[in-house]
Design a protein around this nucleic acid. Structure first.
Lengths: 343, 343
DNA sequence: CGCTTATGTGAACACGTGTGCAGAAAGTGC
DNA sequence: GCACTTTCTGCACACGTGTTCACATAAGCG
């Protein structure tokens, strides 16, 4: 019937194979393979001819077939989480660029709640060299699954103590502690804290840490928070949270758990309330995304050292690939104060 | 020598194979394969036992091996370009989420000048179902290579007429034309245009289009540009360009080729020059990134309909996978005016 | 029991590649 | 011409899977 008319194009759509090149060039399939293998014995003239025929036909050795016998697939799975925060987006972007430059192929799993979605279930079918997680998409069972399947795992944003997984994060508590001290020196006394969302188990640890640094510094000064509010790490969320807090409370320092919320809060304070920052009120963030340095914000914040973190991820990746049995490592990078114009 | 101590761990690091499960469960390898294949003849009891042993050992069928005989690998290559512009970043992020949700696995190639880098050379080795390009990373030879290798290709941001490639872009010229008309109605007469970088061949087409819409509207009003300046689509670049232009020229409408530069220009105009926008001067952008709607910017701009574009990309992907011989399609989506507070 | 049908199973093949191995061809020294 | 080394090449195997095919077992029916 229409078998022929359907099958022939289907056939021709298939990838060009080494066999086809061999037949066209009048050599054995092995020779074709050797033409693409560095340092294999093959007559120079023959090699040149094979490469030309290959170019004509558009042949490339199929990586999947080759990786069946290879030790490494050079593919790295990257779980990004939702990337609502610009910091996450910037970090992932930098990471992907670095992986590409290092000859690794990032297979990205993205979207909401990716860790317990069916998508991750399918991911285990890939012979990936390693998995890299951004904190938001972490879940305990991923760590266990990776351990069982002997897949090197690197987590950033959250620290995990495990024999088989490495993690990188900044010293969140130290960062907010230093920031709070700065505001105290500036004479601030009535502090409010806009926090991240509660209930996201995987972000709970650094959420708690950032808050802890504030509380500790205040305690040492004999103070406590005047107000606190949970939001969602977004600009809009920060704006709404600032409204909620400032409607009912008289505060002179509005600290936010990340920069996105801080810019939202800043907008509300300046545009809607027509208050002067920092004269009437301090507003601070966390992460030091590129936006925070723009003149229109000029936000006082704490640097979450993106490039340094990516450096560590790449280092851990290489080290663990070189020695898979190496014990799990927890890297803590410092979170330095970035005093600008809003404190 | 140390062969044993090195090889044994290496062996044990290898993926668990169907053979191993079969031996452990006392069945044939075929049975294991059938246990993971929907609708294959296999005794229910046996299947349950196999699945349990597989779970214990942490076995998953290797996708690479399976895809050797399969028609489709479900892997889609995504070339992102440099993502300097927030619009690109937001679009890519949405695209990745959609691909994941659709059961496709995005293999991301990222970074500067990715199209002619050695990285893309290695990409041809993967049996990808399709390639998706963001305009910035486009280059003519990619289109030709994809055509030759029968790889479906979808390009966004730039329109390409090709038998084998689809493309999606917005009506750039219409967008800037409408925007310019709005400013003319507002009474503006002395226009300046901050353009994208010259020399990036692959972005030349939409660069030209956006400019053309402005020129055309001005011509119809018997006007021409008072000043023009090339920049780089970034916040910092827009800020610097605004300084260059406003130092030497008296303008009442400062139009920018994208939102990032517009926010930079806005900062310079408001913070540094202490001018009132829009009373003293109009500032406009293009793309309508999420930032543009924030109260602190409230930028008048043109919507580059991100979600609609991603919808089209996904549609084109499915259609072309269903019928690879379908002729190339060029989709133009409208770029609607978003009048806010800076005009 | 004999025949037919339904169900379950292992051997064998195909997918496309890199490489070990043995042997062929070619070059070198006498 | 002969022994020996060097360069080259094709065969065959391995990688891990899905699926066809022939066969075995069991069940249903007269």
């Amino acid at each position: 019937m229409s078998d022929e008319s359907e099958n022939i194009p289907a056939k021709s759509r298939r990838r060009v194979t080494a066999q086809a090149v061999a037949e066209r060039a009048g050599v054995s399939r092995s020779a074709v393979s050797r033409a693409f293998t560095q340092g294999a014995y093959l007559d120079q003239k023959k090699k040149a001819q094979i490469l030309q025929v290959a170019a004509e036909l558009g042949y490339r050795p199929n990586v999947f077939a080759a990786s069946l016998q290879a030790e490494s697939s050079n593919i790295v799975a990257v779980l990004t989480g939702n990337m609502k925060s610009h910091f996450d987006a910037e970090l992932v972007e930098e990471l992907l660029g670095r992986l590409t430059a290092a000859g690794k192929w990032p297979l990205v799993v993205s979207g909401e709640k990716v860790a317990n979605a069916p998508s991750i279930e399918g991911l285990w079918g890939f012979p990936v060299d390693a998995m890299i997680l951004r904190g938001g998409s972490m879940d305990k069972f991923v760590v266990e699954a990776c351990a069982k399947l002997h897949i090197p795992l690197i987590i950033s944003g959250v620290t995990v103590t495990s024999e088989t997984a490495d993690s990188v994060a900044c010293r969140n508590a130290d960062g907010t502690y230093a920031l709070t001290r700065l505001l105290l020196e500036r004479g601030r006394r009535r502090f409010a804290w806009i926090d991240g969302p509660t209930g996201v188990v995987t972000q709970e640890s650094y959420r708690r840490e950032r808050r802890k640094g504030v509380i500790r510094a205040l305690e040492q000064a004999g103070l406590e928070l005047v107000a606190s509010c949970d939001s969602d790490y977004t600009y809009e969320g920060g704006l709404a949270a600032a409204e909620t807090i400032l409607r009912d409370h008289d505060v002179d320092a509005l600290m936010c758990a990340n920069d996105a919320m801080a810019t939202g809060a800043l907008s509300f304070v300046r545009k809607t309330l027509q208050l002067r920052v920092p004269e009437d009120l301090s507003v601070t963030g966390f992460d030091d995304v590129s936006m925070a340095g723009w003149p229109c914000f000029d936000l006082t914040t704490v640097r979450n050292p993106r490039t340094e973190i990516v450096d560590h991820i790449m280092r851990l990746l290489h080290e663990r690939l070189a020695d898979p049995s190496k014990p799990g490592e927890v890297v803590l990078v410092s979170a330095d104060l970035v005093p600008r114009g809003t404190h």
